[in-house]
Amino acid sequence: GGVGIPAGAYVIPKSVWLPAMKAKGLEISGTFARRMGTIQMELSLTNKAMQVMTDFAIQFNRNSFGLSPAAALQVHTPLSPNQTIEVTLPLSTVGPVMKMDPLNNLQVAVKNNIDVFYFSCLYPINILFAEDGKMDRQVFLATWKDIPNDNEAQFQVKDCHLNSEAATNKLQSNNVFTIAKRNVEGQDMLYQSMKLTNGIWVLAELRIQPGNPSCTLSLKCRAPEVSQFVFQSYEAMLKN
C-alpha cells in the first residue's frame, strides 16, 4: 500500500485446484484470504466444456479447523463455454472438525448441472490468525515458561532481508503481534503472539541479525503439530 495505507494480509496467488480434464471441462483455481476478520475462499471458475454450466454448489469435508462455507456459492448466471467468473465464498470456522493429514488439508466437492467433482487444497494457516491474538505481556512470559522445551520448534527463515521494524509491520498486518523487542549482542529479538480461530495460542521469538539474511524463528505452542504450518506462513508473510 501507499503512504498511510496498511499493507494488508498476504494472499497467495491463485493456483489450479481442479483441472478441466478431471472435471468434464470445469476448471477451478483459487486461494484463501483473511480480509477484515473474514476468511474467504476466492475462486475462479472457467467453463472449458462445450455446454453451458449451471446449478453450482459447494461442500467441504470435515477438516482440522472446522472451516465451512458460510454462504451458498454465488453463481447467478449460467457459465457459458470459455467464460470465467470470479466468486468469493465467505467461510466460518464452526463447522465439524476432523484432524486431517496434513493438518491444513481441505477436501472440497463442487457440483454443477453436469456432475459432482472432488478436489483437495491446502490453506495457509495464517488465515486462521485472529484479530485478538495479542497476548498480555505477563501471560506471555508465564506461558513461555510453562510450555515445555520439547514443545519448542526452531526454524530458519532464509533470504529474509527485513529489519525488525519492517518485519513487525508485515507480521502485524497478518495478526502476528509483537509484544516485546530486545537487542542482545547486536541481534533483535522479537517476542510475538498469535491466536488461531480455535483458541490455540502460538508464541514466537524471531531473531534478526543485521547483515544476516537468515532469521531464526522459535515457536512454542501447546499443540506443537501446528508449528511447521506457522513457520510456512512466516516465510510467506516475510518474503512477500
Binding site: 505481556r137 505477563q138 512470559l141 516485546a180 530486545r182 542482545v184 549482542e185 541481534q187 529479538m189 517476542y191
Partner: peptide
Amino acid sequence: ELDDGLDEAFSRLAESRTNP
C-alpha cells in the same frame, strides 16, 4: 508508563536465550 517489572523480565528472557 508504570514499571511493572515486565520490561526487566523480557530483558532477562532475551538474555537467557542468547546466552543459555
